[in-house]
Design a protein around this nucleic acid. Structure first.
Lengths: 195, 195
DNA sequence: TAATTACGGAACTAATAGTTTCGATACTGC
DNA sequence: GCAGTATCGAAACTATTAGTTCCGTAATTA
């Protein structure tokens, strides 16, 4: 294990990290994704641009880091049945997606798919995290005897998350109707799997 | 009806329209969304930049027009049952989405959600077109007696299209498994609606 | 013929991502 | 304490690129 040895020279100021992330999130909310400039972030954070580029290679990585920052990991739910576990997973994802405005999410996704390094980080962070939750829920359903064998998690992932995603990002649908959607999706998918 | 009267002055050359659209699609495929520049499009098309900006207000509108260009409208399927109609709709959407690489679709979606005018055009073109197809399919299912009443088309839209969308754009899943996914989605949604 | 609009081409403007340099500051190791 | 190194905010700088303007020329209507 490499011990976290203090390198020579002045250490990074963690308040600067925080100021950059906060300024990024504020400006993203205030002015939208397309109008976010690095100079504006630096000015709002009261920080030099060099401090930003010492931490991030590109503007995109800065935004990614700032956006990812407050998305905490949700443990796999155990609501007693596949049906309710799926609904909980679906609702959690919906709630997380609903936090950010659509234009920010679209900008983020475009960045992620335009840069190999970011794409890998995105997959490792979000996709695998969600995948693990779904696999756990499915494995529990097998243990309970609700399912004979665990189905393909990737397919279930798409069927479960896709509708919420599409509702919020493409249809820009009403957030208030999200519970209605997640309930129907969970119904539909669990019925289909147990049939 | 406003007759298509020939305005005074030299008319637009439709070959120029075509050259711009072709060059845009070529460069999008060759170099990716993020590296597409207007100068490169003009050079490839053998056209002045003024000719491009005479037709489009922004680079984003140019790309949108070029991308939309070859997406033909698919009439609502009538395969004899709700189950098969839904699968046909799902498969058609999947085939259309699979034509473009994910980075182009993400770039396009980010543009669309960053510009009010483009957003309206996108909704009017794609969302309403898909919505109409789904509404038609659902209405036919009611006529057949498969459904007592037509369910909310927006919810069905999300449940049907979302998984395909998510599979291709977020999971960047294998195109070869698309039929497997669409079959299961159609199964699941039709069973859920007729239950 | 006169007016108008399009054409390719090239020069131009403005915004912005990213780099570099500055003098000052905060650490480690000797 | 002192040398070395990496940080800090600030500002100047470079390079790219979206979008504009102007040129001389060509195509169309009235």
């Amino acid at each position: 294990m490499p011990k976290p040895k203090q390198a020579a020279g002045r250490p990074r100021d963690s308040q600067v990290d925080h100021a950059i992330a906060s300024a990024t999130r504020e400006l993203l909310a205030e002015r939208g994704y397309a109008k976010l400039t690095v100079d504006a972030v630096a000015a709002r954070a009261g920080v030099g641009k060099a401090a930003i580029y010492r931490r991030f290679d590109t503007k995109q990585e800065m935004i990614f880091a700032a956006s990812v920052h407050d998305m905490e990991e949700a443990p796999p739910p155990d609501a007693g049945s596949l049906r309710h576990d799926l609904e909980a997973v679906c609702a959690t994802i919906g709630a997380q997606l609903a936090q950010a405005p659509p234009d920010v999410l679209h900008g983020l996704l475009a960045d992620v798919h335009g840069d190999t390094a970011l794409g890998a980080k995105f997959t490792a962070t979000f996709i695998q995290r969600e995948r693990f939750v779904i696999e756990t829920v499915l494995a529990r359903a097998v243990e309970r005897g609700e399912l004979a064998a665990a189905p393909d998690a990737a397919i279930v992932h798409a069927m479960l998350t896709g509708p919420v995603f599409f509702w919020l990002l493409i249809l820009t649908g009403d957030h208030a109707r999200l519970p209605e959607l997640t309930a129907q999706v969970a119904d539909s998918v669990s019925a289909s799997l147990t049939a």
